[in-house]
Design a protein around this nucleic acid. Structure first.
Lengths: 333, 333
DNA sequence: CTGTTAGCGCTTTCAC
DNA sequence: GTGAAAGCGCTAACAG
């Protein structure tokens, strides 16, 4: 059934019905009620393509992840997608996930254009990638990234403030009485977080000892070896902060292999809250992003640009500490 | 620019241009070449919504995962989505991932309808869910499921044959000389795989001892305890097959805690090939699905139904053994 | 092989 | 507040 047949049943013109369905002010309250009731009763839904054609709107948001394999984790991506889907859904938009890395192919093809774009950036995502995805800035975009916006001011940003999240972890350790804390990094010596670490520790009253910090890598095995080295230090720390949960899992094994109890002898805190974090023994205290919050923030920024022509904005969201049981009071020395 | 302006530039009618763009036979080879070249040069792309309106096609496949939280893992979902996206992309379709569990809301709303549906079923997905998703069978669908098709013959199925994958694992153990093999299950005593296990072992010349089989659950801790019990059996097995990699990881820890080497004293094989499978120490030999293959199979079945009106089909895809290093030769007894 | 034209189903002026 | 009618950009008959 299309809108003209439906209008005939109601003895109304298509114009009036259309206005009622679009919740326009010019239509009388009772007509609107009638139309809505009948539409539900007869299960009448408008043809989406005709609406899109005539309005020039697509009612479609795309979430693109050009380097999805380097994004925190699949869980992150799936949960983020789901939260954005829910958030845009209540505003009448569909959400279309695009994983493909063949950016250019798609940008030039005749796929359905989107009204807005959520770009999940990885460390290697560049301004050029954004330019391609947005068709040179034609489509409003919000970029989800770590720490700092990229050099592309036309987009909105939701920045994940890992520094302050890690600050919470460091303070948590300080409150538990730790004064010497080791660090197992993921190999990014120049990252903002890595740079901020000495200050974070100092602010919490913890000694920053560079010989207690190792840039390990990404695997559990690398975490194991780095932690082993740190724990064999002549003056070992009572706690270790690891840049990722995988590294933290390796660090826990290293402690065990040296006959140390966790958290009895050494406390360990991870980062990311990946699925295994809760499966590890003991369950990992870790720093995590509130993913649904990120999704909501991105959605509201994007829809503000699309529907209200608001300018690009920058939001900062903090990661937060999730306390489980891998960190406890410092052992007395 | 729209097709009439574009046609004027070429001094052709919109009809001819449209035919050329749609790769119709009635247009001359050189005209087609000219049109295509000019379109690329001027970056002309047709309005997708107008095409959709007039053709009645949506050029859209939806992949729905009504119980996504109970599906094997996020990696599975993301990789599957990506492989389907690539496969339908070359045929001119967009792919729309729908995670939302609010099935009915969406089915009745005015979101863009899809030409076909890929349904990723979880154990709790019912025929009724499929009915809702397909709008009572209005839209062609392919269901990806374990072992057996559901009682809904209008859909095509891609069934993951875990039984034969596990058969490979059992045979692998047999070839390594194992004659007594324990089993750590995930709590589904009546599953097809569980039912087939005694036969699988017998066929491989391995003794099936029910006292060596425990339905553990889903956590690593449960895997630990089940494996501990099995390994303390008065006549312990030389190998253990665990229903999931998480259970297998627990089993490895149990072996270590009893002072047993893996695979020196006991071999362990998992199932699923989740990310941590390769991170575990030793890296886990496991039974895995070739996800891109599943995606391609689902896509070809679906597009055959949509474009060639082919009847619903049922495909079975086997899981396969991935040999790493957690299984080795049986210890001599 | 190419041109002409009537819609696809909806929204939105413009009258009333 | 409602009705009539003109398109949105494209495809697919139908002529030629």
């Amino acid at each position: 059934m299309n809108i003209v047949e439906f209008s005939k049943i109601l003895n109304l013109s298509t114009g009036t019905v259309s206005r009622a369905l679009n919740d326009r002010a010019e239509v009388s309250a009772e007509t609107r009620k009638l139309v809505l009731a009948k539409a539900k009763e007869l299960q009448f839904t408008r043809n989406a393509n005709a609406r899109r054609l005539v309005t020039g709107k697509n009612f479609l948001i795309r979430i693109a992840c050009p380097h999805y394999m380097h994004v925190l984790s699949d869980r992150y991506l799936v949960e983020l997608t789901r939260s954005v889907e829910d958030a845009v859904g209540v505003r009448g938009y569909d959400l279309h996930l695009r994983l493909s890395t063949r950016l250019l192919d798609h940008a030039l093809s005749e796929h359905q254009p989107a009204d807005g774009l959520v770009i999940v950036a990885a460390p290697e995502t560049t301004v050029n990638d954004i330019l391609i995805l947005t068709n040179s800035g034609q489509v409003p975009a919000v970029v989800i990234c770590e720490e700092q916006p990229l050099e592309y001011p036309k987009a909105s940003y939701v920045c994940i403030d890992t520094v302050s999240g890690v600050g919470q972890a460091i303070r948590h350790l300080a409150e538990l009485g730790h004064r010497r804390v080791g660090y197992v990094g993921s190999g990014l010596a120049g990252s903002p977080l890595r740079l901020a670490l000495p200050r974070l520790m100092a602010d919490a009253g913890i000694l920053w000892d560079p010989t207690l910090a190792i840039e390990a890598g990404v695997t559990q095995e690398q975490g194991f070896q780095a932690a082993e080295t740190i724990l064999r230090h002549p003056s070992p720390p009572t706690a270790i902060f690891a840049r990722t949960d995988v590294l933290a899992a390796g660090a826990i094994q290293a402690a065990y292999s040296l006959g140390l109890a966790v958290p009895g002898d050494v406390s360990i805190i991870g980062h990311d809250n990946i699925e295994v974090a809760a499966l590890v023994n003991p369950p990992l205290t870790t720093v995590a992003i509130d993913i649904p919050q990120v999704g909501r923030a991105a959605t509201s920024a994007l829809l503000a640009m699309i529907e209200n022509d608001e300018p690009a904005s920058v939001q900062r969201l903090s990661a937060n500490l999730i306390v489980r049981s891998s960190a406890g009071p410092a052992r007395n020395t």
